[in-house]
Amino acid sequence: MNIGWYLAVSAIIFTLGAVGVMTRRNPLVVLLCLEMMLNGGNLALIAFSRMLGNGDGQIFAIIVITVAACEVCIGLGMVVAIFRRSLPIDVDELTELQG
């Protein structure tokens, strides 16, 4: 399989993640879709690492997984905090970040 296939799959995953972020209203699901986008990026990185015979891509991918884990922590912490305040768990209702 040449690398193009892997990159195609990576693009599809990434796009599906983007659509999910734009479409879903549950913040948990939005975070999940965000994870998916990161995964798409990971796949591309590893594909290129294999192509070039270099370990750099894989290291990058590990770091990305680490960062994703941290981000999930914080995101879920925020969701819990929001839930604790009895605010609706709906991205469309949480509009404090406005001008």
Binding site: A18, M22, T23, D92, L94, E96, L97, Q98, G99
Partner: peptide, 18 residues
């Protein structure tokens, strides 16, 4: 007009980002 872009709705922001 510009202010209406900053509606606070996350999905809009993401859509614009994409």
């Amino acid at each position: 007009a510009v202010r209406s872009l900053q509606s606070g709705f996350l999905r809009y922001y993401v859509a614009l980002l994409v």
